[in-house]
């Protein structure tokens, strides 16, 4: 499902002393089947932006198209339920939303809410719990007996069980330890590749944005500042710094080294392996001049 924003503006608390323009005339395109990361400083409009994709927020002006669905400003009657079945939303700290007596019931809640029979919902729940890697001996226990990381996976299974085509992730790894972070991100990468899911991820982690996405959108002051492949975006070091963003630590390190050897260039390298190769090249390349 292609996602398109056309001149979308969102104003919070209109006609109150707290009026705030959180999105300002935003036009962006997220292609079907892409993995898009949205980065930006706290308060830049990232979360507001993604909450428009499944109609949690409605635009004050402009138009959003998600597949066949169109959401316009000032339009009352919209079939948001059908849209929300297609667009799953994993909120920040989704484990806070678990509520059922057992894990399996919790995962069934989503699909049954969309009219799926109990038998079918149970089947899907089992599939999705397997997908997120939760051992079956735990399925009939209370979700509240699990560790934080496991609870988060149950919450994610609940979103997957609705079988959305688009998944929105708002800081999916916040508060997780490094191993948990890697597990969750590889899970979405895998889902993205195997099921051709469109993924939109809001993140503060530049390395995650660089390593997992094929498109990065940079938000600043309610507007998209730039959009493109990670290699291109993270080469704009000065621009990113100006809006309070870092570059992936691999590149930060290379910049320090380049600075020291007196070279002025930017090397987009996102993994440790790529960065190490670049280091060797920088050192070797300089040696030839000596």
């Amino acid at each position: 499902m292609d996602i398109t924003f056309e001149q979308v503006t969102h104003v919070y608390g209109r006609k109150t002393p707290f009026e705030k323009r959180a999105l300002n005339n935003v036009s962006i395109h997220i292609p079907s089947g892409s993995f898009t990361s949205i980065i930006g400083h706290t308060g830049s409009g990232k979360s507001t932006l993604v909450q428009h994709i499944n109609g949690i927020l409605k635009p004050s002006a402009g138009r959003i198209t998600v597949g066949d669905f169109v959401i316009r400003a000032n339009e009352k009657k919209q079939n948001l339920k059908a849209l929300r079945e297609k667009v799953g939303f994993v909120f920040q700290y989704p484990e806070h939303q678990l509520f059922e007596e057992t894990i399996i019931k919790d995962v069934c809640f989503g699909p049954m809410n969309f009219g799926v029979s109990e038998a079918e919902a149970t089947k899907r729940a089992e599939e999705c719990l397997q997908l997120v890697g939760l051992p079956s001996q735990l399925w009939h226990r209370s979700p509240f007996d699990l560790s934080g990381g496991q609870m988060r996976r149950v919450a994610i299974a609940g979103v997957l069980a609705v079988r959305p085509q688009v998944i929105i992730l708002d800081e999916p790894t916040a508060g997780l330890d490094p191993m948990g972070r890697e597990e969750i991100l590889s899970l979405f990468k895998d889902l993205h590749e195997r099921l051709n899911l469109t993924i939109v991820m809001v993140t503060h982690n530049m390395s995650d944005a660089a390593n997992y996405s094929d498109q990065v959108i940079v938000m600043d002051g309610g507007k998209p500042l730039m959009a493109g492949a990670p290699e291109r975006i993270f080469s704009q070091v000065d621009q990113l710094r100006k809006v309070g963003l870092d570059i992936p630590e691999t590149m930060e390190f290379l910049n320090r080294l380049l600075d020291r050897v007196g070279k002025k260039e930017t090397i987009p390298a996102f993994t440790i392996n790529e960065a190490a190769d670049a280091v060797i090249k920088i050192l070797g390349g300089v040696k030839d001049h000596v």
């Binding site: 191993m179 190490a276 280091v279 060797i280």
Partner: peptide
């Protein structure tokens, strides 16, 4: 299950590559 600090990862990778 702990990650390593960036510099340690980088240092190990470079050593493995013969630096």
């Amino acid at each position: 299950g702990l990650d390593l600090p960036f510099t340690v990862k980088m240092r190990n990778e470079l050593r493995a590559k013969g630096v």
